[in-house]
Structure formats: C-alpha cells, structure tokens
Design a protein around this nucleic acid. Sequence first.
DNA 1: CTGAAAGCGCTTACAG
DNA 2: CTGAAAGCGCTTACAG
Lengths: 360, 360
Amino acid sequence: MRNRLIPNIWPIKKLVLVTMKHRVTLKDIAQRLGITVTTVSKALKDYPDISKKTKEAVRELAAQLKYQPDSQALALRGSKSYTIGLIIPEIVHFFFSNVINGIMNYLETKGYRLLITLSNNSTELEAKQVNLLFGNKVDGVLVSLANETVDVGHFKLLSEYDIPLVMFDKVNLDFNCQKVIIDDVAGGYIATKHLISKGCKRIAHIRGPKSPLNAIGRYEGYLKALEEAGLDADPSLVKSCKLVNLEEGYEFAKILLHSPAPPDGIFAVTDQVAVGVLQAAKELGVKVPQKLKVVGFSDSLIAQVAEPALTTIHQPGYEIGEAAARMLIETIEIAEEKGEYMAVSDQFILPTYLIRRKSS
Amino acid sequence: MRNRLIPNIWPIKKLVLVTMKHRVTLKDIAQRLGITVTTVSKALKDYPDISKKTKEAVRELAAQLKYQPDSQALALRGSKSYTIGLIIPEIVHFFFSNVINGIMNYLETKGYRLLITLSNNSTELEAKQVNLLFGNKVDGVLVSLANETVDVGHFKLLSEYDIPLVMFDKVNLDFNCQKVIIDDVAGGYIATKHLISKGCKRIAHIRGPKSPLNAIGRYEGYLKALEEAGLDADPSLVKSCKLVNLEEGYEFAKILLHSPAPPDGIFAVTDQVAVGVLQAAKELGVKVPQKLKVVGFSDSLIAQVAEPALTTIHQPGYEIGEAAARMLIETIEIAEEKGEYMAVSDQFILPTYLIRRKSS
DNA sequence: CTGAAAGCGCTTACAG
DNA sequence: CTGAAAGCGCTTACAG
C-alpha cells in the first residue's frame, strides 16, 4: 500500500446554494431572437437556405453568449464522438510518454479528443478498457498490448462494430488491424554489428521476455549480425529478463562478467537494463568501453545521463505515436467518406538508428 | 519540423461494404421481450416496482446481448458524464507522468474516465483546452498551470458553471478553487540545511524562473536555511533558469565554479539542472562530493543513474495526482448529494523529504 | 427563406 | 406491475 498522506475527508469550507447556471443552447439563442431552433442550427452551420441577415444575427448572439454545441448531443445524434481511446500498458515510461505526446499533438490538429486508459500490463484490465471505450463510443482505438497479453480476443468487439483499431509497439501480428511498429530486427542487428565493428568477439545479449515480439525481434537481429560476421552464437551469453529493469541488468551482467569466458560486449534489450550492466561493470572494476562495450535500446533520458553515456538505438516514440494516430484518423475519415469500412491487416514499420556515445 | 517518416497516404488495402452492426439498445431488448423500453430501463436499474420475473428476463437478455448503456445518452439526460478533464503542461516528464498515473488509478476505482489535454506550457492553448473540456461537459477539471500562465481568467468559465476545479503543483494561490501542492519552502529548506550540515559554507542556488510559485518557494526555503545558520545570502550565488534543463545547469555551474570565490555546495531547482551541474563539475575536475556537494529536487529516474548518484528532494508525484483526483471526486459527489456547490479556496500540502545519495 | 416534426438512447414523473 | 409521454440538445428531411 501507498502512504496514506491524505486525510479521509477534505475540509470543504462552505457549501452555498447556487442556481446552477445552465449552458446556453440553441433554444436560448432561438428564443432571444424569436426564431426556431431549426433555423439557429442551420444558420450556425451556414446552410444556403438561411438569409444573410438571420445568419449574422445568430452568429453574433452565439458569440456573445459563448455558445458551445453540446458534444454529447452531437455524438448521440451523429454517431461520431470525435473521441479516440488509448490503452497503454504504463504511463511512467519515457518511451510511452513520447508516444502519447505524438498522439496528442496529432489529434489536437485534427480536432479529436483523447480518452486515455491504462492496462497496467494486465490482460484482464486491458479487456475491461476495451469495453469501457466501446461503451464510450470512441471513433477509434489505439493500443499497445500488455506484456502478458497473448490472446487478443477481447479486441474482436471493436471489429464487430467496425471501430477502427491501430496497434503500436506491442502488437499481435496475426490480428486483423493496422499496426505501427519499429524494425526491432534491424535495431538488434545494428546494435550488434556496431559492437562487432568496435572489435568485440564475444558479444552477450540480455534480452527481454520470451513472448513479446520486440524482444524476439531484437534477439533475431543480434543472431543475424553474429552469423553474418561468422561469430559463434554462444547460448550461455544470452540471458532473458522477466521484469526488464535495472536490477536484472545488474544481476545478469555480474553473472556474465564472472563467468570463465566473460563477454567483451553486451547488447541489452533496453537502456534501463544497460545501465544495470554499467553499474555491475563499475563495481567489478571492468572498464567501459575499454574492456567491455555496452549498447542499450530506446535512447531514453537515462542513456544521456549514464556514466559513461550510453550508446543506444533510437526508438522514435513521438513518431510512432504520431503515425499510429494518423493511421487511425485517416482510416476513420476514409471509412466515413465512403460509408464503408472493413478492418484490414496492414503494418507500417518505422526505422531505428544508432546513437553513438561513450559506452562503446 | 519533425522528420516526415510517414507517407502521406496509407495503403488501405481493401474497403468492403459491411452493414455497420448497430449497438444493442434498450429498444432491442424491449422488442425481443415484447415489453417497453421503460420497463427494461427500470428492470436494469432494479426499480422495486418491476416483477422479479421481468427483471430476470431482462438481465439475462442484456447480458447475452452484451448490452452497454450509451454513455452519451446518459450524459445528455443526466447532466453527469463521469468524465474528468486534465490539462497538463507536458507529458514527457517523469514527475507529471507519475501524477497522471496517480490520477488514473484513482479515477479507475471510482468509475470515472479521463480526458487528457496538453497545454504545452502555453497559456493560449491552456485556455483553449478549458473551453474544449467545458464543451465536453466534464464533471470536473484537474490542472497544473502552464509555466507562462499568470492571468487565470480563462478558468472562470468553470466556476461560472459550477464545474469543480482542482489545481495541482503549478497553481495560482489567489484563484478560488482547491489546490494540491507540495511544501516547496520546506523542500528548499531541507535541501539547503542538508548541505549546511555536510559542512558547506558557500551555498549556491540555481533556481527556476521568477514567477512560478515552486521556484519562489524553493528559493525562500534556501534563504531561510541560510539565515537560520547565520550564513550570508550572497546574491551572486543565485542563478535563475529560464528553460530549467540540463544545459542551463551546466552553464550556470561553469560560471559559478569559475568565479573567484566558488561555492562548495549547490542546490539546484530540479534534478535535470543538478545533473548539468555534475557534468560541469566533472569537466572542470571539481570532485563531487569532496569539493562540491550537490542536491537536486524531484527524485526522478536520472537522479539514481547520475554519477555520482544525486541527493535530492522526493516530490511525491503519484500521491499528488491521487490527492488531486480524490479531492475533485469528493467535491463532485458531495455537491451532487447536496444539490449545491460553490467553489472555495482550499489547499492541501503534501510533505517532501530528502533522499541521500552520493553527491553530498 | 423559415419552421414543425421525428429521432438519436436514455430516464423518470405520472397514469392506469 | 407495466407503459405512454416528455424531455435532455441537437440535426435534417420535409412541408409551407
């Protein structure tokens, strides 16, 4: 449990009866102008069959009263809510916050709102959020799957109702929807190849869990680079994280560096893990980059701050978010225009690249 | 401009006509059961005047058809949307993502949804978001003010319509609403006092911009600690950031350390700035903590990763978010219950504490 | 050029 | 115990 710093009852100092001021509606404008709601509605939407005079009067009064259309009424009537749902595994995360930033800035330009929900990496909660977003009549959904999610059946609800879905980063390639991912294989390949070019002969890989595609892809890239260089892929040099955090990096690095034939290079699945490696190396007096070269993955803030600064693979979070949002909105709008829509499996792959720093 | 990695048109592979499956409504249930919408509605809400038999039949069919009430219709009718609006200056930010996490987890337990918007630290955009959230009929608003925001007149719209508002972290103390803040004065005081206790005699402060209350409070705490210890407050030892980033910390530290009478301790307004100080010190060969002791503020991830690990003031982001959300929801629900509400100025202050690491 | 009417999906006071 | 009716705020096909 978290600290209960918060008292149970807030000191609400006064509660005074106030007539809840009501929002200005079309009716208010109509009444003041002595015309109908119909005419007001049409005037505001610039229908050609309304007189210039009326239009002007309506617009002026609307501006004066700061009229704002009721989005709920609009959504109820028009079957479009201008709201997009997002399901994200966690929010305290450099990469994901960049993704969200990209999503929000894109949606802002398009006049869509973002309803954001958390799966906390739980498939059960993820399913619940799908239902919640469906109940909220979002026009589309963006999701990065929970780590533990294998079966994606809970997303079928969306396809059944023709609600466009775009998966990003953590995706399920078999599911019939659009996807935005990075080229993890290429990323792992570039990282490993870089270590090889720096003269490493025994390269270890601290990888992610067995099932997420990202972890698999990065591992494949690692193997590919080794093979291409004619280096042996020694299975004892590959360790698999569960939590993918600094501590695991630290522990695995200690094991690797203590082994009879320690590695001279380590490619870690994330920057966090790589920083754990740096800490272990420091503790054991293994000089980085002289005796051990380290490459991370993500290009997060800590990569810059680490000592030595970490060489890493840039993972374009902002662009991924922007691309996913864009893919979704364009799909929504095309479907709208054509009055027809069917989910298709389609993927867009963003490139990654190496950021060279002091650790290699 | 950002990289245009994204093609202009997505390859939408097929678009096939599909009869948009319609959402199941009360009407559907009523028709199948040969009863009225009224009865169905009452049955689902467990009204006492509906027969057990009918209730059971309705519930069963509703479950079978996976009926979900239309939240727009509910909101339109009931004047409650179960949606909270959030306006945040930026999202790629350790502290703010923790705040959001606290907010979301609390709202989740209470069955509220979160509509999240960005001010990008612009007062203009902040005002726009207030209007947007108002138009969306949120039940309440949470905001952390943009750095440049001085005049908060754009929030009056909310009070006019009796929409509860809670400001957190970056607040305006004069505005008539509830606030959740940390004790910045105490934080600055603790940080500075710690440096004094470690033997520092000439303590510099790299502070934030002139207007945000956080920066002012931390600075005041700094002065208070100096005064209490009988140390002179040398104005040449105080530098004021504009962007509050690593680079500014680096630059100011260089100036301070190059001066004729360099400081032996530096209290920086954030961890980012403090890390800049560490980098400058390293470059100039000034040993930390032997020759220079450094304290940051926030307890962000980079504080742990920095070399040496940074002593800092813990700023409880999660708890701030949770407290703000809780304050808001409780206010909403009390107002609802009593049928009356009036904004009151009220503040809740969360404590901070020192995290000792290697930099001091 | 303007307006009456129906309807989106729901709830609730009222009638039977 | 069940249902007809009104209404939340809007839009739009249709009539005048």
